[in-house]
């Protein structure tokens, strides 16, 4: 007579039933919508690298603070520069900060996290204590600290923002890997006498990437936000760059006379962030059914 502990209960929740029957395929529309918008913005940003209606750095004293018109759809700034051209020319910077920072944290955080999962000795402990320490600084302070001491630049902003998310990815990838190491299929690999490299490549990584990618997708929003905040504080790309956060910061003095100077880059930044956020949530719904 079996009292099999694992007897599957025919649970009532229509949610779980649906998931059991259909598998998880949520978030498709969010992914399409957000991803589509993101691709469009990226294309515009790439075009902006080569072509803008006006020279984004050319001064035109007679056109200072001109209101939006057909010739200058987003108006001009205090030096008479075309705001639309500047927004276009700066588009790639926000994308670069957001995705660049994510790549930095992926490149540093995931290997360190996996190492911490595999190494039960002092190295693993050291990595985790280091991550604990970095996480005990409020996110913006770590960025401020790094950027305050040395002259700011785009690369440093990317690095600073990326470093903020390294400990989060260290913790996540370690937790995911530790969970997988307990799985029976990893035990089966060990029973074949597979080495750590083979287990990592064949058993762990193929199963670990979905939660890591989901986390990254959601973090890109915060990375872009943090990067823009640092730029806004003057700790990102320096003038005459037209990074959007920087443009908004420069517009502050002229807000009363020329609100378009801040609104144009601000709204573009919002559009980018919403697109990234929607795409990230879509990705999560698609890959991680437990958070539907």
């Amino acid at each position: 007579m079996s009292t099999g502990g694992g007897a599957v209960l025919d649970t009532p929740g229509a949610d779980s039933l649906r998931r059991r029957i259909l598998g998880s395929r949520g978030g498709t529309s969010a992914l399409l919508f957000g991803g589509g918008a993101l691709v469009a913005i990226a294309i515009i940003a790439i075009i902006g690298l080569w072509y803008t209606p006006y020279d984004p750095t050319a001064f035109a004293v007679r056109l200072r603070l001109a209101a939006p018109s057909l010739a200058h759809p987003f108006g001009t700034d205090e030096f008479g520069r075309d705001v639309m051209s500047r927004v276009l020319a700066g588009a790639h910077l926000s994308l670069a900060i957001g995705f660049g920072a994510m790549l930095v944290s992926l490149a540093l955080g995931v290997p360190l996290g996996l190492l911490a999962a595999f190494d039960r000795g002092w190295l693993g402990v050291a990595i985790m204590r280091g991550a604990d320490l970095m996480i005990s600084l409020p996110p913006i302070l770590l960025g401020l600290l790094i950027l305050a001491v040395t002259p700011p630049s785009l690369g440093k902003t990317i690095l600073a923002v990326g470093l903020v998310y390294v400990p989060i990815l260290v913790r996540l990838s370690r937790a995911v890997a530790l969970g997988l190491l307990e799985e029976d299929f990893v035990q089966a690999a060990r029973a074949r006498g597979e080495g750590a490299a083979s287990i990592l490549a064949r058993e762990i990584l193929p199963n670990a990437w979905p939660p890591i990618i989901v986390e990254c997708g959601l973090r890109v929003t915060f990375a872009i936000l943090l990067g823009a905040s640092l730029s806004f504080l003057g700790l990102g790309p320096q003038p005459p760059s037209s990074e959007w956060g920087l443009m908004i910061a420069e517009s502050r003095e002229f807000l009363a006379q020329a609100p378009w100077m801040g609104l144009a880059p601000g709204l573009c930044l919002c559009a980018l962030l919403v697109a990234v956020n929607v795409a990230g949530e879509g990705l999560r719904a698609r890959l991680d059914p437990s958070h539907a």
Partner: peptide, 16 residues
């Protein structure tokens, strides 16, 4: 010397 596991859902690598 080999092994067969209890839970069929975790015994096989879902990506293979």
């Amino acid at each position: 010397a080999q092994i067969v596991f209890q839970n069929p859902d975790t015994a096989l690598n879902p990506r293979q």
